[in-house]
């Protein structure tokens, strides 16, 4: 399963809701405002760093770039992908759930 999270964890609880229910080994893609959860040095970073032990966590580079962040701004263990990678992930992970 690939879980999609598109909201900032500072404003909405969708990422926490996802982390509580995602099966171990699932993929989680942070995109749109969800990319703020992937940034190093925030109060949310430890949560994500810890979650990389249980899940494959990805962040969408074009959404990072649009918000003024380079790929090197993200937490170690979170993989940066582009839209081609997004498409590939949906295929690799077999089903897709959006947390809205």
């Amino acid at each position: 399963m690939l879980h999609l999270v598109n909201k900032s964890p500072f404003e909405r609880t969708t990422l926490e809701a996802c982390l509580r229910r995602a099966a171990p080994g699932s993929g989680i893609l942070l995109y749109e405002d969800g990319v703020y959860a992937a940034l190093a040095g925030t109060s949310f970073a430890p949560t994500i760093a810890n979650a990389t032990n249980a899940f494959d966590i990805f962040v969408l580079a074009p959404d990072l770039a649009a918000r003024g962040y380079a790929p090197d701004a993200v937490i170690d263990g979170v993989r940066t992908i582009d839209y081609d990678g997004f498409v590939d992930l949906t295929i690799e992970k077999q089903s897709v759930q959006s947390w809205l």
Binding site: T90, I91, S98
Partner: peptide, 8 residues
């Protein structure tokens, strides 16, 4: 084979 939902 895949359904992808885009929302808010």
């Amino acid at each position: 084979g895949r359904t992808v939902v885009f929302g808010d």
